[in-house]
Amino acid sequence: MPRLSRRSLLAACLAAPALVRAQEAWRPTRPVTLVVPFTPGGSTDFLARLLGQSITDALGVGVVVENRPGAGGGIASGAVAKAAPDGQTLLIAHIGTLAVNPWIYARLPYDPVQSFAPVSLLAAVHNVLAIHPSVAARSVPDLIALAKAAPGSLNYGTGGVGSAAHIATAAFEVAAGIRLQHVPYRGTGPAVSDLLAGRIQMALTGAPILLPQVRAGSLLALGVSGTRRLAALPDVPTIAEAALPGFDASQWYGLVAPAGTSAPVIDTLNAICRTTLSTPAMAARLEQEGADAMPSTPDGFAAHIASELARWGAVARAANLKAE
Rank of each mutant, 00 (worst) to 15 (best):
P2Y: 07
P2W: 04
P2I: 15
R3Q: 07
L4P: 11
S5L: 09
R6Q: 13
R6M: 15
R6H: 12
R7Q: 13
R7Y: 11
S8Y: 10
L9G: 15
L10F: 09
L10K: 08
A11T: 04
A12G: 08
A12V: 04
A12N: 06
A12S: 11
L14K: 04
L14W: 00
A15H: 02
A16L: 07
A18D: 14
A18P: 15
L19T: 12
L19D: 14
R21A: 03
R21F: 05
Q23L: 05
E24A: 01
E24M: 07
A25G: 13
R27H: 04
P28R: 14
T29V: 15
T29D: 09
R30S: 10
R30E: 10
R30L: 09
P31M: 08
P31Q: 09
P31E: 09
V32K: 05
V32G: 04
V35L: 03
P37V: 06
F38H: 14
T39N: 09
P40F: 00
G41I: 10
G42A: 10
G42P: 12
G42S: 13
S43R: 07
S43L: 09
D45Q: 01
F46L: 03
L47M: 02
A48H: 04
A48P: 02
R49G: 03
G52N: 05
G52M: 02
Q53S: 07
I55M: 08
I55T: 14
T56I: 06
D57T: 11
D57N: 09
A58V: 01
A58C: 07
A58M: 02
A58Q: 06
L59N: 06
G60K: 02
G60P: 00
G60R: 00
G62E: 14
G62P: 12
V64A: 01
V64Q: 02
V64R: 10
E66Q: 02
E66C: 00
E66I: 05
N67Y: 00
R68F: 01
P69T: 14
G70A: 05
G70W: 08
G72E: 03
G72Y: 07
G73L: 01
I75P: 13
A76L: 08
G78R: 09
V80D: 02
A81C: 04
K82D: 00
A83R: 02
A84T: 01
P85M: 14
D86T: 13
Q88V: 09
T89P: 06
T89E: 02
T89M: 02
T89W: 01
T89F: 01
L90V: 04
L91S: 07
I92F: 05
A93I: 08
A93W: 13
H94L: 13
H94N: 15
H94C: 13
